[in-house]
Design a protein around this nucleic acid. Structure first.
Lengths: 120, 120
DNA sequence: GACACATTTCAATAATTGTTGAATTGTTCT
DNA sequence: AGAACAATTCAACAATTATTGAAATGTGTC
């Protein structure tokens, strides 16, 4: 993943509303939701929702598909996995032993932490 | 991790300069670098560097320690690991089978992708 | 075709973020 | 104490992002 794409993704995730939005779409994966449903769940105006949907689309974190007069949005989970892989690589940055040591010392359950191995 | 902290972290990583800065500090972990060294590497003015360092500090992604008349900055790798764990949890969101399926289909090497298991 | 509906686009404004140079704080060295 | 240095803070301004209401686009229904 390129730096430019990574920063676009982080910018897209940097607002409460958009993070909630993405999570909502993950929750409703793989069917997704149409814009009106999202607006109801998040209690936000259609106009403002459009704005934030566009931000997430621009980053590629969600996709959109026309469905009659509705627009159906879905989370782009593969891109999220790529993003996680990118962050994992950044945090090791050629020194996986560091990452491993910190992970071993971490309070976070090992089960949810990424594999950060030199043979990457 | 709370939503508020997560969005602060993503905001901190949403600018090229700050992402580069964090990577630089990871590269020089665990010793870190003093502000002047960072400014040289990134070719940025001291003033502007201070601004972006503060943003990363605010998010908790870096730490600072006084060292004579220098200030030494270090990457907070455990927080990055927590962030990765958070994103991993978000992308599964109670439906690990989705995450697993996408990961299986992904072009990204399995070695760098996070474990995303129901027994998390 | 006329109407209701789903959603976006546009325009205006408010709020936040990014950048720059000058002034300030605090440290070291002699 | 005084000079040199490291880094930050401050003030001003430019640029971007967020929010709102009104108008426009396109789709389905009678």
């Amino acid at each position: 993943m390129e730096t430019k794409q990574a920063t676009a993704i982080f910018l897209a995730l940097s607002a409460d509303l958009r993070l909630d939005l993405f999570r909502l779409l993950v929750k409703y994966a793989p069917d997704g939701l149409v814009a009106g449903e999202i607006a109801k769940y998040l209690k936000v105006s259609n106009t403002n929702l459009s704005f934030h949907l566009k931000a997430l689309l621009h980053a590629g974190l969600i996709t959109v598909e026309k469905e009659g007069r509705f627009l159906r949005y879905r989370a782009n989970i593969p891109l999220m996995l790529e993003t996680i892989a990118y962050l994992t690589a950044e945090c090791c940055s050629g020194r996986p032993e560091l990452c491993r040591d910190f992970r071993a010392a971490s309070a976070v359950s090992a089960a949810v932490l990424p594999v950060c191995d030199s043979k990457k």
